[in-house]
């Protein structure tokens, strides 16, 4: 069965969607990703959708769901590289994906993940170290 690969990069998981998403593929990705987060204890998830050309309300909701689920599993999610046409479609569908963080490209997305992880570490250990 077709699957979307999930790559591990240190504390982060990298998902690159290179094919057209259909509903079953989206559900499989959701399963796989949540399993991998709990297995690896990843602190951040980066989803690259720069090759995604068609999006519908189901895929939009799935992106939102994945972000919320990762949040529950203590990992930040960043969606990067959304195309203008996809962004317009999602807005017209009334899905603003509140709670999902976004970045222009993988570079900017990794910066965002690192910064937020640093901020979390500071908040957790900063006072104790001092």
């Amino acid at each position: 069965m077709e699957r979307i690969p999930i790559l591990r990069m240190g504390e982060y998981l990298l998902v690159t969607i290179q094919v057209d998403m259909h509903d079953r593929l989206a559900m499989t990705l959701q399963d796989d990703l949540t399993n991998r987060i709990s297995e690896t204890g990843a602190k951040g998830v980066l989803i690259d959708i720069s090759s995604l050309e068609i999006v519908d309300s189901f895929i939009g909701r799935m992106l939102g769901n994945i972000a919320s689920m990762s949040r529950v599993l203590d990992a930040d999610t960043v969606v990067v590289g959304m195309r203008p046409a996809v962004a317009i479609t999602l807005v017209e569908l009334g899905m603003s994906l509140t709670g999902v963080r976004t970045a222009l490209n993988v570079d900017a997305g990794m910066d965002l993940l690192r910064n937020s992880l640093d901020a979390r570490k500071d908040a957790l250990y900063g006072s104790r170290i001092q």
Partner: peptide
């Protein structure tokens, strides 16, 4: 608001 939201979705 739509324009702002779309730009945010793209990461700007």
């Amino acid at each position: 608001l739509k324009t702002v939201t779309a730009a945010r979705l793209m990461g700007a």
